[in-house]
Design a protein around this nucleic acid. Structure first.
Lengths: 144, 144
DNA sequence: TAACTTGTAACCACTTGAATTACACGTTAA
DNA sequence: TTAACGTGTAATTCAAGTGGTTACAAGTTA
């Protein structure tokens, strides 16, 4: 099990919109950078648009950032591309036996624990911004 | 996307082994508590055995805990049932375009960030033990 | 009007999860 | 020693999700 690559592709798209902000970032152009097809890029870009992260309009070529670089956290991207339904990172088996002490209480006991772990993950994603990612990309590029 | 219920079932099994330690915990008995089938329980129990968490032998009815309750963290269970390959909680799109600044550096930039987030998740799971879960189950059961 | 782009839907191949069935093999007790 | 029972494991099935691809309606611009 892995969290969908939509997340990393979303980060890729937003970084590219910044680094290539002088150019026109069509779905076709972005797809070539990501190495996938334009339809998938449009789908993800649509999700980022719904989350208020990018501007993109039917018929008009190119997407642009809708927020400051430093104001877009990876958590926002994570949630935007909908890779994990809210509070459902961990799957919990359904319908345990109510006639059993464990079965009767396992779900209520585990849920808050899973929730804490999930929040820890989200917190870690929440402190990193696309600006950080763009900086990392540019720095790495210099050293090569 | 959700992390496989094997994880929560694994926790269920271990908790049951403790709470029903006076009885004989066959795969059939456990399956009735979890509300699934015995074959799946045997599969997961086998994983827990490989991780050194339970004792179970062919032909001999019942599984037992192989470690102290307080010495089994949820992280161990998480890793035992193999729900997430090592360092691969987040999927990263393959083969981005090396002719593009972003494509050339995105993977190396993102990986350490994802790694930090994944470790935060694991850390949260590492501080909770099966003993805590069992205590939670018993406490919840009293209040109902 | 023609060319181009976005937004979507539809379809496919592939992987994974979970349920289920079946059976070989180990153990135990009559 | 044989019958009953339990574990280990493989095979099958069904459902769901992911990512790739094609196709096309609708918006925009030259």
């Amino acid at each position: 099990m892995s969290i969908s690559t939509r997340f990393s592709v979303g980060i890729h798209i937003l970084s590219l919109l910044e680094i290539n902000k002088e150019g026109v970032n069509t779905s076709d152009f972005i797809a070539k950078s990501v190495n996938t097809n334009p339809a998938l890029i449009r789908k993800i870009t649509g999700m980022l648009k719904n989350a208020g992260l990018v501007n993109v309009r039917p018929g008009i070529a190119g997407a642009t950032l809708a927020k400051e670089l430093s104001d877009i956290t990876l958590l926002e991207v994570y949630q935007a591309v909908n890779v994990v339904s809210d509070k459902e990172l961990f799957g919990i088996h359904e319908n345990p036996n109510p006639a059993c002490t464990v079965g009767r209480n396992i779900q209520d006991t585990i849920e808050p624990i899973f929730s804490v772990a999930e929040l820890a993950l989200e917190k870690a994603l929440g402190v990193v911004t696309i600006e950080d990612v763009v900086r990392g990309i540019l720095e790495k590029d210099k050293t090569n």
